[in-house]
Nucleic acid binder design. Structure first.
Length: 175
DNA sequence: ACCCCGATCGTA
DNA sequence: ACGATCGGGGTT
């Protein structure tokens, strides 16, 4: 695994939809494990009723309003955690939910946000970590390019009409 | 101080 | 398709 190209803060400081799409197929590094990002969802701000940020800033969602490239981890259903990466410029809320990974070390498919966090023991202690310049937790660029499909987001009651879930489909034909 | 419900998962 | 599960966010 030579010449790793880490994504910088500018990559994440863009529209949540764009970041969510472009994260598909990239590598999420966590404590020496390398994982292909296979599934993401975009959660935006005032125009996204499904987003935690929809009704403004609270103690839970405040990292969504901060600088991009930070982790946003919260507890869901009293028993699972969800890992997000903050997007958009500072002051503008947005985050990308990491819904699926393919772990290259153990060849395990982590299909579901709860499974991702459970496998790595990611909890709210991992909230608000800077994933830029972090040696143990960061995202890097894959040299391969991938196709993805767009579907409605999972597990929400509002905003179902938006195709803001992105799923890795296949390896793009290498020319 | 406390009520209510969820960005899920596993089984049917 | 649905029920288990329960911490804590958001409001009182």
């Amino acid at each position: 695994m030579s010449d790793i190209k880490k994504f910088n803060r500018d990559f994440f400081s863009r529209s949540t939809l764009l970041v969510a799409k472009e994260l598909i197929g990239q590598y999420l590094h966590y404590n020496n494990s390398i994982n292909i990002i296979t599934e993401t969802e975009a959660y935006c701000g005032v125009d996204d009723p499904a987003s935690h940020a929809y009704r403004g800033i609270t103690s839970r969602n405040r990292v969504m309003f901060g600088e991009a490239g930070y982790s946003y981890v919260y507890l869901i259903y009293g028993m699972y955690h969800c890992l997000n990466i903050v997007s958009e410029i500072e002051g503008s809320p947005g985050a990308v939910l990491i819904r699926g990974l393919y772990n290259l070390n153990d060849k395990i498919n982590l299909n579901g946000p709860g499974k991702v966090c459970r496998h790595f023991n990611i909890t709210r202690q991992h909230n608000n970590l800077d994933l830029i310049n972090n040696p143990d937790f960061f995202v890097s660029e894959s040299t391969r390019s991938y196709c993805f499909e767009e579907t409605p987001r999972i597990g929400i009651k509002v905003g179902k009409e938006l195709n803001w879930r992105f799923v890795l489909k296949s390896l793009k034909q290498n020319l």
